[in-house]
Write a protein that binds this DNA or RNA. Structure first.
Length: 494
RNA sequence: GCCCGAGUAGCUCAGCCGGUUAGAGCAUCUGACUGUUAAUCAGAGGGUCCCCCGUUCGAGUCGGGGCUCGGGCGCCA
């Protein structure tokens, strides 16, 4: 909504972009988005122009047609009323079908029909873009399966579902930047091309300019990457965390937010080869500070989406998942529970619930365990803290018990793990010991070790897959619908 | 990568134990009707039943192989 702006001010803001302005006694044409047209901020009778794509057309023998127009600016469509007196009424208006691009000019008036407050009484309708074969245009005014729409990823944003997802996606991205900025964070753009296997986080995509048909070889017959573009092996990033730690130990509160790549052969509704990840990192902070940060973060993002995209969220609740709105509201209102990993294992072992996988101290929790904890046992989001050191990454801080590291997972009802984080090992000797245990060559991590040699401090952070969060917010069942052009094993169309 | 399921009109699907010309809703086109709301009513057009091989007098239907899609698991965010 365009709150805090007078109708007059709104009008002025757009009048300068209109046609024929500056003539005395002539009211300038105002180009409005559908959202603006429906907002009620434009004085009745103002000459306006709206542009978009036809969703449906209904003809009336009373001498007019109703054209529902969408331009993506909001969930709702604008009803354009086209009188039979238009010169192109029979030749064009009555031939409009779903997907046609039109420019409609006329006056905004209160609607005589039910279902909308305002409508456009058209003086003219231009059709810059026809649909060449209406019968085979894939997007019809009816529900389509997400599976089918994945085959037409270039046209699916024209549906209610993907329009809503796209707007919520944008709103969430902006909400993340706004929230973290408000908390004093700086956005650090860590590299997309990397030469270190950041944390063994997964298989990596190789970046190379070598001629695959004619690879340079060294003395021993191995591929000579010294001849490659960067003079050594290079890959697409699997995480910006290690790089952002350096900026954390200078700017105190930082985050990465960018594309991330995993070359794993994962064929599930929860995995993408290319996705966006958010990784906040805070200095002078321990695991509890990290959990506080994560809780505040999630609640702020969800609040913003509910506030700014109420129209789209109402659609998800109506058509995708009944409790799409209420569970976010419940999430926001619930203080997170915090339990120790060791305690969680005890609870799971005592649970009457039968699990497919056994629970044993030292094993990572399965999705079924995580969901049972959050949904059945606690009934709200829960942070599980301090996991066995053997199942967690090398950079996580060893606890005093010598058996666990300061790692945390945020588990939410409905999905399981939504955030993973940890306090980082800031002690050089401990870090070196853990790297040795993981078989990592310290020579490849000199700059990372330097951070522990020069002004090291306790610090912590977490990682969050953006599309998984979007799946949760929208109530989707497949992550391939949470990103415009999904990349998965065997798929990089479009 | 492993396991399971599904491919029939533009879309969503029905099609029994193998048997005549493969159906419905929506969409499209034509007409009727109407300030209409995924309008309604009537009619019409629209099919390589995913592909190949096999069994059979006869295959959308049964068997084998392949392809594609979906789900579960693993890896993980």
């Amino acid at each position: 909504m365009v709150s805090g702006r007078s109708p007059l001010g709104y009008y002025r803001a757009f009048a300068s972009f209109g046609h024929g302005s500056g003539q005395a006694g002539f009211q300038a044409m105002v180009t409005l988005s559908v959202k603006q047209a429906l907002s009620g901020h434009t004085p009745e009778g103002t000459p306006v122009e709206v542009r978009g794509w036809v969703r449906t057309r209904r003809d009336s023998k009373a001498g007019l047609s109703f054209v529902n127009l969408s331009d993506g600016s909001c969930f709702d469509t604008l009803q354009v009323v086209a009188p039979a007196s238009l010169p192109n009424y029979a030749s064009e208006v009555q031939k409009l079908s779903a997907g046609c691009a039109i420019v409609a000019r006329g006056r905004l008036v209160p609607s005589q029909g039910k279902g909308q407050a305002f409508e456009l009484q058209a003086d003219s309708i231009e059709v810059p873009g026809w649909v060449e074969d209406p019968e085979t245009y894939p997007i019809q005014p009816k529900p389509h399966s997400p599976e089918f729409l994945r085959e037409v990823a270039h046209l699916r944003p024209r549906t209610n579902l993907f329009g809503a997802i796209s707007r919520v996606r944008h709103t969430m991205m902006m909400a993340i930047h706004r929230h973290l900025t408000g908390e004093g964070f700086f956005w650090v753009n860590t590299p997309i091309i990397t030469t270190s296997d950041a944390e063994g986080a997964g298989d990596m995509f190789r970046v190379s300019t070598l001629d695959l048909a004619n690879l340079p070889r060294d003395d021993r017959g191995a591929i000579d990457f010294r001849k490659d573009f960067f003079g050594r092996e290079a890959f697409l990033t699997v995480s910006g965390q290690l790089n952002v730690e350096a900026y954390c130990l200078a700017l105190s509160k930082v985050y990465t937010f960018g594309p991330t790549f995993r070359a794993e052969n994962s064929n599930t509704p929860r995995h993408l080869a290319e996705f966006w990840m958010i990784e906040p990192e805070i200095a002078f902070a321990d695991l509890n500070d990290d959990a506080d940060c994560a809780e505040k973060f999630l609640k702020a993002i969800f609040s913003t989406v509910l506030e700014e995209r109420a129209d789209d969220m109402a659609f998800f609740a109506e058509r995708v998942q009944k409790d799409a709105v209420t569970r976010l509201e419940k999430f926001i209102a619930s203080p997170f529970e915090r339990i120790e990993y060791t305690e969680a294992v005890d609870i799971l072992k005592r649970a009457k619930q039968k699990f497919e996988f056994p629970v044993e101290w030292g094993m990572d929790l399965q999705t079924e365990h995580e969901r049972w904890l959050a949904e059945q046992h606690v009934g709200r989001p829960v942070v599980v803290m301090n996991y066995p050191e053997k199942i967690k990454a090398f950079y996580m801080r060893l606890n005093d018990d010598g058996k666990t590291v300061a790692a945390m997972d945020v588990l939410a009802p409905g999905i399981g793990e939504i955030i993973g984080g940890s306090q980082r090992e800031e002690r050089l000797d401990c870090l070196d010991r853990r790297m040795a245990e993981f078989g990592l060559d310290p020579a490849h991590y000199q700059w990372y070790r330097d951070l522990r040699r020069y002004g090291t401090v306790p610090h912590a952070g977490f990682g969050l897959g953006f599309e998984r969060l979007l799946v949760y917010v929208c109530g989707l069942s497949n992550i391939r619908d949470a990103i415009p052009y999904p990349r998965t094993p065997g798929h990089a169309e479009f």
